[in-house]
Design a binder for these strands. Structure first.
Lengths: 334, 334
DNA sequence: TGCAACAGTGTAAGCGCTAACAATATCCCT
DNA sequence: AGGGATATTGTTAGCGCTTACACTGTTGCA
């Protein structure tokens, strides 16, 4: 069960066993074979905790996300995992559910695990936490939140730009009465999307908008839409904070017999796979999740020959038109 | 950074610091306060590896799943995590992507981490692995695969029964020409679903079926459906191995202008949230994922006052009729 | 007033592994 | 055959923390 039981059985020292395990330095073929045999006979599995304690190194990186259930986060995680594996690292995830306390707990946990790097892909953020992390000396990548510092890389997406493309498009289609379905209105990065909508509307007197928010789930999108419409407001286009909530919105509209896009246009955000599979397929804004994943791993697990990564990276989204948007219905205010 | 730096700063011994950290035994209030102060001043974060090495205990459980991207697995994971947290445990996940080698790697990893318990929610399985796990003395719960042994709990779902309900229903609606969309035909538990379809068809000479399989994703479902129909076969009902592939199937049918359920009925399996949100909403078979999650945690983290859990649990699925199924179109063989 | 019973703390021995550094074996060349 | 260079393997000191067990003050009560 432990290194030295194996050593005893193979009649070598623990150091030698350790050597064959890490196939370090040169172990004579016959000795290596003897050790291997002992290992399989004993069904020995090295204790990873002891390993990282003794070695002082750790080949795992942590990923903290707000809501893994949302494919947006999951897609990032997936690339991170693939890349990390390719570089011989493990990855361990944590979910915060948009709860700041949970974020704190997760970060502490990761620090406690002495991860080699940490990706924080969340929308909630406590500034004190950024400091705590900065002081932990762990290489960190923040997505959406935090400020660059030594050993902290920042990735942000130009949400404003994305939303402006959406609004510009809807406007060109004749939409004037807008709705915005969000979630967690209190969180800054999410708010940025809503803010962009509000600002665009403020800039153009012809536009008006109403907002509602609920959870970041299919059900949440549906619920928010219900609230939005229950108020008697009848937008010709509903801008959703992301694709998942948009699919929820579609469901609610269908329920009410409102046709999309004939009666109401709907837009998503993120361009997750589901946005192509729902009905109607969603007009949305693409955010390159794979690219984000690659950037994360590059920053966290620097490669020998690679140039040092930037400390602040801004990503520009891309607009995708599909079937959920169309010309505003002939104006006849209700 | 380490326990004894804190100890030195608080002018106590490491044992005392350890005591306040684990709020074990009685530490005098003033001492505790002094230690706490030192801890925050030093931004000390206990090294979890050292902790579990020294303590010989570990408060984390592992979950290995075939495809976390599929909400079916994710829902189980979510409940497991919630329950585990409630019992003061962490959980660490691993994805296998239906790849047996990855399963082996993940299991080894979990053993190396000396997890307190391990849930293996996968479809692929190497019998030798079961043995390796059984010998590791780690409490294990298998979902869908493996055989009960001491310290191994087994959960299985009566897929056959579920499929039979589906087929029975479709049959009663007049469907005779069936299609089956699966994934990973080589894996036993998945095959069980297909087998059930095949058997039902074999039992009833009036029925016929054709199958196709691709990945366990939206795209995979779509692709399999494409293959199924490309052969010139025109089923009046398509039974999908799960909801995700079913949504993929819906998409392909829509693309081809085939109406669901007027022209073709479609069924899913699992009853994930998405099955209510897609269009049309899916007739499916409910599998109680939360219940499965609870069972897992109960088996892995036994509670003081609780009765020992069963070693083999069989779950009966429940049929859910929604909008994706309807009477078979008036027979006119193409 | 004296002493057992505690309440608080300190000491030190590991947990299982890595990584210098030290110690043998082997080997090649003269 | 002798000696140093190499190839292999062994020793041992931690890594940071938990946990008996040992050791001081304090109390309580006869």
């Amino acid at each position: 069960m432990s290194l030295d039981q194996v050593a005893r059985r193979a009649k070598v020292s623990t150091a030698t066993v350790s050597r064959v395990l890490n196939n370090a330095s040169v172990v004579k073929g016959s000795t290596r074979a003897r050790v291997m045999k002992a290992i399989t006979e004993l069904k020995y599995h090295p204790n990873l905790h002891a390993r990282s304690l003794a070695g002082g190194k750790n080949r795992t990186i942590g990923v903290i996300a707000s809501n893994m259930e949302n494919p947006f986060f999951f897609d990032i995680y997936k690339t991170v995992e693939a890349d990390a594996h390719a570089r011989g690292h493990e990855v361990v995830v944590a979910n915060t559910d948009y709860r700041p306390e949970q974020l704190v707990a997760s970060i502490r946990l990761m620090i406690g695990r002495r991860v080699a790097g940490l990706a924080v892909v969340v929308s909630e953020m406590d500034p004190a936490l950024t400091k705590e992390l900065a002081e932990s000396r762990i290489p960190v990548v923040f997505y959406d939140v935090g400020t660059p510092r030594p050993n902290i890389t920042n990735i942000r997406v130009n949400y404003r730009r994305g939303i402006e493309m959406v609004i510009g498009y809807l406007h060109s289609l004749g939409h004037r009465r807008l709705g915005f379905v969000g979630h967690h209105a209190g969180l800054a990065p999410i708010n940025e999307r809503m803010r962009a909508v509000l600002d665009a509307v403020a800039r153009n007197p012809a536009l008006e908008v109403k907002t509602a928010a609920d959870a970041d789930t299919l059900e949440g999108g549906r619920q928010a839409t219900r609230v939005l419409l229950a108020s008697g407001y009848s937008p010709t286009a509903i801008i959703c904070v992301n694709d998942i909530t948009a699919v929820g919105a579609l469901r609610e509209l269908r329920e009410r017999g409102i046709r999309v896009p004939q009666d109401v246009s709907v837009t998503g955000f993120d361009n997750v796979k589901l946005s192509e599979f729902c009905y109607p397929s969603l007009t949305t804004v693409h955010i390159p999740r794979e690219r984000i994943g690659h950037i994360i791993v590059d920053a966290l697990i620097p490669q020998p020959g690679a140039a040092a990564a930037e400390h602040e990276i801004v990503i520009d989204p891309e607009f995708m038109v599909r079937d959920s948007t169309g010309p505003a219905p002939a104006g006849r205010k209700r």
